[in-house]
Amino acid sequence: MSTHLITGAGSGIGAALARRLHERGDELVLFARDAGRARAIAAEFPGASTLVGDLSDPGRLSWALSKQQLPKRIDSLVHVAGVVDLGRVADLAPALWAQQLAVNLMAPAELTRLLLPVLRVSRGQVLFVNSGAGLHAHAEWGAYAASKHGLKALADALRAEEAEHGVRVTSIFPGRTATAMQERVHQQEGAEYDPGRFIDPESVATTILTALDLPRDAQITDLSVKPGV
């Protein structure tokens, strides 16, 4: 039985992954932004434990975790949580840049830093759910894509640094996936949302499980997942 710490387990890809891991009997540690959200998520996954911290304020994560009991073992740290706000570079306010960089890049970096000692002991795995935008940037996606390009750089550097400790590092790059975030993106784009056109979160969860369950003689470093034809 393995222990997995997951951010963004309240919906979408994170919820699908947590459900699959819970069904097979693995231990879950679910990261939530506040106590109320933690209780709601824990109720969905009996036996799971929770940690509380605000990913939009990475500088306070160390303080937040110091007030809580951390798990003694973590086999995987899976970063799923993210935010997106579209806008042209000419129009996007600094606050929207700051929010996306904080949640999508700085918080994963800081949370990983804080949990690395435990991950090293278990020779665990850090998995970043990135985005197709982490490989290619399009008009009005500048801030989000910048945060996700940065996330890829973080993963690449971490992989090189932690190889000596046996910590595996994986980046998953899903294309457009049928989640609440995708629905919000369509609202921002002024487009009709049809979830049937996009990847099912369960398919991305299957991809993540493949990377997590891979035998120790190999690792998946980067994997793109695109909608079927």
Rank of each mutant, 00 (worst) to 15 (best):
G25K: 11
I172F: 12
A139G: 03
S2N: 10
E202H: 07
A81V: 02
A16N: 08
G82T: 00
P108H: 06
G175W: 06
P227S: 12
A178S: 07
G59N: 09
A18P: 05
D213E: 13
V129N: 13
V126T: 05
S131G: 00
S62T: 00
Q219Y: 03
D34F: 10
A180Y: 04
T7M: 09
L28K: 00
V84A: 11
L61Q: 07
A38P: 04
L96A: 13
V126Q: 05
L127T: 08
Q188L: 08
A146D: 11
T3D: 06
Y144A: 04
G25A: 10
S171E: 01
P108A: 03
L115E: 08
A43D: 15
L51D: 07
A35F: 01
D217F: 12
G10M: 10
G8K: 05
L5N: 07
Q125W: 03
H165W: 12
V80H: 11
D75Q: 09
R19H: 15
G14R: 01
G132F: 08
R184Q: 12
L86D: 08
G47V: 03
A218L: 08
T7V: 06
H136I: 10
R216H: 06
L135R: 14
E202Y: 00
I41Q: 13
R120M: 10
D57E: 15
R19Q: 15
P174T: 07
L154R: 08
G196W: 01
P71I: 11
A40D: 14
V118P: 00
G196E: 02
S11E: 10
V84C: 10
S147L: 09
L151P: 02
Q100M: 09
F173S: 06
G59S: 12
A98G: 04
D75K: 03
S56K: 04
M106K: 03
Q182G: 01
L114R: 04
H79V: 02
S131A: 05
Q182S: 05
L61G: 05
R176T: 12
V229A: 15
V118C: 09
A42V: 08
E23C: 08
G124K: 03
V80C: 14
A133R: 02
L61T: 03
I74Y: 04
I220S: 07
E44H: 06
A180D: 08
A15W: 11
P215T: 02
I220M: 11
A98F: 03
A145E: 04
G134W: 08
R19K: 15
L127I: 05
H149P: 00
H186V: 06
E140S: 13
D213C: 03
E110N: 09
R184I: 01
Q69W: 12
S2L: 10
A48C: 01
P117D: 03
E183P: 01
L115F: 09
A32P: 09
H186S: 06
G124L: 04
